[in-house]
């Protein structure tokens, strides 16, 4: 299996999408000769030409609208928001149009499109270029929301999103782009059944730690810390946030009796808060030996200074500390 970064794995998936469907085009800002702000589309212009790799003016509203119009007329577009923060400028086509057309028209159309964007903090890009807005889209019926965490799942999930007949918001955390691993570059799947499935990264009995996007990587490293070696930690990567695989988390919590959710986004009305509410209103409630915890980003815009940025985002040490607290609490 070839070794590659997440950015390269996404590019491989994009190539496969372009190869498998003649109607597919990619549109976005600086995706052509520049290769994308994060280099993800580097080389695609040379391979597929301007007809299919479309550099747009700085116009997010029409970038997203373009995808909707193309999707309801037989194409399978993939569009890019250079930073997912700019999706704010494209909310109408995504929220009022893409998400609703299938339902509003009584099923007469499908809207098979992907909006990809770079999300998250950690690069010093400050408040308008560092957000984790994924939960906004989870709130909207009709959208699917996917957050890969490494090269392999980015590849697999982008393909699954592509074969899904619904609009998919695909949020790529900036810090995963350079993560490197071997990737099995499988063929285009026949259906999108991979969407909506979480993955158990590591099995354990003492606590269930759930996360998604780049925070999963922090959880994995935290669990390897010396001070936690005595504990048996189950780690779950949600992967798809809408629809969310709460059932798997509920099953896990019934076994471990403890739940910690870690996310970069602030807690209020978030993925973690929704997941916790689903768990405590489920059969797993009785199994819990303490209240679940949500380790989330501070309720603050992202500051630019490095030492402040790391204060806002939960760090590995915070995760270690929280896991210890929760397990030792009960022993």
């Amino acid at each position: 299996m070839p070794e590659m970064t997440t950015g390269q794995a996404i590019k491989e998936a994009l190539s496969l999408c372009l190869d498998s469907n003649d109607t597919t085009f990619i549109a976005g800002e600086d995706i052509g000769v520049y290769g994308g702000a994060f280099g993800v589309t580097d080389g695609l212009l040379e391979k597929y030409g301007h007809e299919r790799i479309k550099d747009t003016p700085i116009s997010e509203d029409v970038i997203a609208g373009l995808a909707v119009g193309a999707a309801i007329t037989g194409s399978k577009p993939i569009v890019e928001m250079q930073f997912s923060d700019f999706i704010v400028n494209a909310m109408d086509p995504i929220v009022n149009q893409a998400a609703k057309l299938h339902f509003m028209y009584g099923g007469a159309v499908n809207v098979p499109m992907i909006v990809r964007g770079a999300s998250g903090a950690g690069t010093g890009a400050a408040a308008q270029h560092s957000q984790s807005l994924e939960s906004w889209f989870c709130h909207v019926p009709g959208l699917k929301v996917v957050t890969p965490s490494n090269p392999q799942n980015a590849f697999d999930l982008l393909l699954a999103s592509f074969v899904d007949p619904n609009p998919v918001i695909f949020m790529e955390h900036k810090l995963i782009y350079k993560l490197k691993s071997e990737v099995n570059l499988g063929p285009m799947p026949s259906d999108s059944s991979e969407l909506g499935k979480s993955k158990v990264i590591q099995e354990g009995n003492d606590i269930t730690v759930v996360s998604y996007s780049n925070m999963v990587n922090s959880v994995i490293s935290a669990a390897k810390e010396d001070s936690l070696t005595d504990y048996s930690i189950e780690i779950i990567d949600l992967l798809t946030l809408a629809p969310m695989d709460s059932e798997s988390v509920i099953n896990s919590v019934e076994k471990t009796k403890r739940l910690l959710v870690c996310q970069e986004a602030p807690a209020s009305s978030s993925v973690g808060s929704t997941l916790i509410s689903e768990v405590v209103t489920s059969r797993a409630f009785k199994a819990l030996n303490q209240s679940p915890e949500l380790l989330a980003g501070l309720h603050s815009p992202m500051p630019s200074a490095k030492h402040l940025e790391t204060t806002v985002i939960p760090q590995e040490e915070d995760i270690v500390q929280k896991i210890k607290e929760m397990i030792e609490n009960e022993q």
């Binding site: 010093g124 400050a126 408040a127 308008q128 270029h129 500051p303 630019s304 200074a305």
Partner: peptide, 10 residues
């Protein structure tokens, strides 16, 4: 100017 919260762009 922004107490380190804004940075270059803000």
């Amino acid at each position: 100017y922004c107490r380190g919260r804004g940075g270059s762009m803000h």
